[in-house]
């Protein structure tokens, strides 16, 4: 996608500057979570009957039509949750050491190729090499959720997309649906894990379950106690910020605390593959002239 296509993509949502010039604010996130609320009301997980299909359609159209208005009025989120988790990845400082990937795999007892946060080596439009860590985008309109036949995927009130591995039958259609290649299957027995502080559950999928799909969970079980995800903690460059759209704060692993909305605006943060309508909760701060959608991987 080039800049034009960004413009085109964002056009129906807001009559304002194109995405990469448009400041990303908390109110953007809020109107999206309101939309999510509508979506949840109409097509909540496990809702039987055709309503769930039509509900999904309704929520999508309601979103595109009514969102600009809500953004303009700055309407508050419809969710009662006290947090809306988000992540910021500052590509300017990533050196491709993959400490994040290693920490994640160690923490969640994953196989080496289960790179829930995968560091892609990319090349920018100007030919410059840079690195791009890719966790799950925790999409507000996740492509992976509606395709699951047994409702094993769901999105929490706090904006986390999680997998009930006990339920997952392993059709892998969510792996097909995710535009970010963020899902990883357990093709063989999982890495054995010692006794865990939590029972195996969607927010704490340790150990993994053979024959089911797994993915980055933003270290969901740790968030309530104020701990940032393992990748953020272990990044020596402070690239990964864990943020909360409600309290408008983001923190990285080397002690920087920022005002989330200001941080995103000032650094012209962008989101990955906006053309897919998934509305990720992960923002990237570029700085090398990258446009994430066109850059190609070089190694």
């Amino acid at each position: 996608m080039n800049a034009d296509e960004h413009e085109h993509d964002e056009a129906p949502r807001a009559p304002v500057p194109p995405a990469h010039e448009q400041p990303v604010t908390v109110s953007t996130a809020r109107h999206l979570s309101r939309r999510r609320f509508l979506g949840a009301a109409a097509s909540g997980v496990g809702l039987a009957a055709v309503g769930s299909v039509s509900g999904a359609l309704i929520s999508r159209s309601a979103h595109s039509a009514a969102a600009p208005a809500r953004a303009a009025t700055g309407a508050v989120t419809g969710s009662s949750a006290t947090h809306q988790w988000a992540m910021v990845i500052d590509l300017r400082y990533c050196n491709g050491c993959k400490a994040c990937t290693t920490a994640c795999e160690r923490y969640h007892y994953l196989h080496e190729d289960q790179t829930w946060i995968h560091v892609f080596t990319m090349q920018s439009a100007s030919g410059e090499q840079y690195f791009m860590p890719r966790p799950c985008m925790m999409c507000e309109d996740p492509a992976c959720v509606p395709v699951c036949p047994v409702s094993a995927n769901f999105r929490t009130e706090e904006g986390l997309v999680l997998v009930t591995q006990q339920r997952c039958v392993g059709t892998r259609i969510c792996m097909n649906a995710c535009p970010y290649q963020a899902r990883y299957f357990n093709w063989s027995a999982p890495v054995p894990a010692p006794r865990q502080p939590f029972p195996q559950e969607p927010a704490w999928p340790v150990p993994q379950v053979e024959g089911t799909v797994g993915k980055c969970v933003f270290c969901a079980a740790m968030l309530p106690s104020g701990r940032i995800p393992e990748c953020a903690s272990y990044c020596p460059m402070g690239v990964i910020y864990m943020g909360d759209l409600e309290s408008d704060v983001a923190v990285n692993g080397i002690g920087n605390t920022v005002t989330l909305s200001k941080f995103l605006t000032e650094n012209t943060a962008i989101r990955f593959k906006t053309t897919f309508g998934t509305h990720p909760r992960v923002w990237y701060i570029t700085g090398h002239g990258q446009t994430l959608d066109t850059d190609k991987e070089v190694a």
């Binding site: 496990g46 039987a48 009957a49 055709v50 769930s52 999904a56 395709v147 047994v150 059709t171 259609i173």
Partner: peptide, 11 residues
């Protein structure tokens, strides 16, 4: 098992 069904799934 109908309680698990997610009717928006092509599968």
């Amino acid at each position: 098992w109908p309680p698990y069904w997610n009717l928006s799934s092509p599968i």
